[in-house]
Write a protein that binds this DNA or RNA. Structure first.
Ligand SMILES: [Mn+2]
Ligand SMILES: [Mn+2]
Ligand SMILES: [Mn+2]
Ligand SMILES: [Mn+2]
Lengths: 172, 172
DNA sequence: CTAATATTTTAGCCAAGGTTAACTTATTAG
DNA sequence: CTAATAAGTTAACCTTGGCTAAAATATTAG
């Protein structure tokens, strides 16, 4: 399958009345049709809604696994925010049925929370491994993966995984 | 340079008193040191602050280039939000010195706005091209790029660009 | 020129995610 | 056991980025 099959939108419909744009001028970087463009931004807004929740449950799962318990003071330190912020977000996580806890006590994940944590963790790992396989330094890969992970579709994840696997074999 | 040099954090310092985690159990996916971990999240929060601004100036530049003017009604349609939302965000862009306009008239970019738009556009283009070169479908690549672009460091961008270039030559 | 329509702005609302400061509860030292 | 310290919560505040409904301005049709 060849890349660059759909470059630009030469034949795309445009409903603006003053569409006198000469065909030749905007070759490869014309605007996508309005509705598709809107879909792109909507997908990003969508990702933003769950981003923080995913990071929290992932971190809580990691702390439970590696430290035995997930205290909100650790979360605050690891996230680099105040404890008050953690407290409020945890309240939200509880109201969403992702986390359970008694006041002043350690945190736990619900079934739903564990499911989300597992998926987030796997996705995070795939992206991180891919970036390292690409040749990105560990430090940078970790930073980029933390943000990118929330904006990578399943299709791209599959391709990233395949790439890492091939790299692993054929890697010099 | 071999990948997977720094896997995990076996030798990392941990200051938690109840650190009885057996060495063998958490091999490849131990938690990074607290301060580095916090840096990751801080970088993401940082990106979130400019994300929308970047998308706006980029879109405004695109509209100016392809349609001759940037009306807030077009922005609203392309972003998939209400005109009121656009109006408010444009007020913010103006207060940040990125956009200029007279009331009820079309929008323009300041020098600063154009600079930001140029950088954002280039970064966006690199990410999109990279995803297509990887083999991701055009539709998915556009969606993923719209979100990923804001979380990709210069180091990774350089590597993506090199990858796309090599793909272009050796591509079957 | 006037009336209808389209565009832009404003006002009032909301949720998320951050802050500091003050308070409450747990844990630890003596 | 009590006092000091650590951890967690709550209250009050802020900015961002959404929304709807209403008002103001521009543009277009007749
Ligand atoms: Mn993650
Ligand atoms: Mn993340
Ligand atoms: Mn962009
Ligand atoms: Mn974007």
């Amino acid at each position: 399958m060849l890349p660059y099959e759909h470059i630009g939108y030469i034949g795309a419909m445009t409903n603006s009345p003053n569409d006198v744009t000469p065909y030749r001028l905007c070759k490869a970087d014309a605007l996508p049709p309005s509705d598709q463009h809107a879909q792109q931004y909507a997908a990003v807004r969508n990702a933003h809604e769950t981003e923080l929740l995913e990071d929290y449950v992932e971190l809580i799962a990691d702390l439970l696994k590696h430290q035995g318990e997930a205290r909100s003071t650790d979360i605050a330190a690891r996230m680099g925010v105040s404890q008050a912020t953690v407290s409020k977000t945890v309240t939200r996580l509880k109201s969403l049925g992702l986390v359970s806890s008694k006041p002043y006590r350690s945190l736990f994940l619900t079934e739903k929370g564990e499911a989300m944590a597992a998926m987030s963790h796997q996705r995070h790992a795939i992206v991180l491994k891919f970036l390292r396989a690409l040749g990105v330094s560990d430090h940078t890969a970790r930073i980029d993966a933390e943000g990118m992970e929330h904006h990578v579709s399943q299709e791209t994840l599959d391709i990233m995984q395949r790439f890492s696997r091939e790299q692993e074999r054929g890697g010099s």
